[in-house]
């Protein structure tokens, strides 16, 4: 089959998120560090894409640019074809657990974004919040304080908080980095189930290759100094995926090998 024919036969999803030739530099102690150089990526509607690379490759910077918490020096970021100018509820960010608000309880954290969303009554907001708390399995912890929760539970709250305003795009910045392996595995299962249910477009940043293969439809490999995209891999495994499966390990090994062939990018976890 020719590639042309193949293209004709596939159902092409619309492009949701488009990063075009984006560059970004920071001043660190007087020196200019190029965090991103001419980065171009495309994420389709409903696609789950993982950005992998060692620390300093600009993957978090890219996420911040898409969230419009920062502005690119050059290039353009489009969501649904229109340029991104300010943070918006259409692109929610799930930070590491430290971004939860300790002065609010679990419900208060989930409600925070909902209260800023117009046209919702108080009753609506409570209903939406409890719907998502139920989805992440924390219904019975609605009124718990943040410091009373375990690391995994905190991440579930963060996920519920990001999901609550019903964004189409979810940006996740190493959300499971600080968790132990068992808790992480449980969350891999849950997040896949939630993704299958809600079909968000997800851009997921991690330094863990296996995690990326477990979660992503596509894995984008990045390299540092300057931050750039070096390769992309399609992951065509059935879902839900088990992080310990052999097929998944083979994919991960293939990607890790590509990383290791590049002498300077060896510090990535397998």
């Amino acid at each position: 089959m020719t590639t042309r024919l193949q293209e004709e036969l596939t159902n092409v999803p619309p492009v949701k998120l488009s990063v075009q030739g984006v560059s970004k530099s920071f001043r660190v102690k007087g020196a200019c560090v190029q965090a991103l150089r001419n980065v171009t990526i495309r994420v389709d509607e409903g696609e789950y894409v993982c950005l992998v690379g060692k620390s300093g490759c600009g993957k978090s910077t890219l996420l911040n640019l898409i969230a419009a918490l920062d502005r690119p020096d050059a290039g353009e970021i489009l969501v649904d074809g229109s340029p991104v100018t300010q943070p918006g509820r259409d692109r929610m960010v799930m930070f590491q657990e430290t971004a939860l608000f300790p002065w609010l309880d679990v419900l208060g954290n989930v409600l925070f974004g909902l209260k800023l969303k117009p046209n919702l009554t108080k009753k609506d907001r409570l209903e939406v919040a409890s719907f998502y708390l139920d989805m992440v399995g924390l219904k019975s912890f609605t009124h718990a304080n943040i410091h009373e929760l375990s690391g995994g539970m905190k991440q579930r709250v963060a996920l519920a908080r990001a999901l609550a305003p019903n964004p189409r795009v979810l940006l996740m910045d190493e959300p499971f980095g600080a968790l132990d392996a068992l808790t992480r595995e449980k969350l891999y299962v849950d997040i896949q189930n939630i993704w299958l249910k809600r079909r968000k477009t997800i851009l997921f940043v991690t330094h863990n290759v296996r995690e990326a293969v477990c979660l992503g439809d596509r894995v984008i490999l990045m390299a540092p100094e300057p931050g750039r995209v070096i390769e992309e891999f399609d992951i065509d495994l059935e879902r839900p995926r088990d992080i310990n499966s052999v097929a998944l390990a083979e994919h991960a090994t293939r990607i890790t090998r590509v990383l290791k062939e590049r002498p300077r990018e060896q510090e990535v976890d397998e």
Binding site: A67, L69, P87, V93, F95, F101, L116, P165
Partner: peptide, 11 residues
């Protein structure tokens, strides 16, 4: 990070 998180939620 609190302020950044709040900004993404529209604050």
């Amino acid at each position: 990070i609190y302020v950044r998180a709040a900004r993404t939620m529209g604050s």
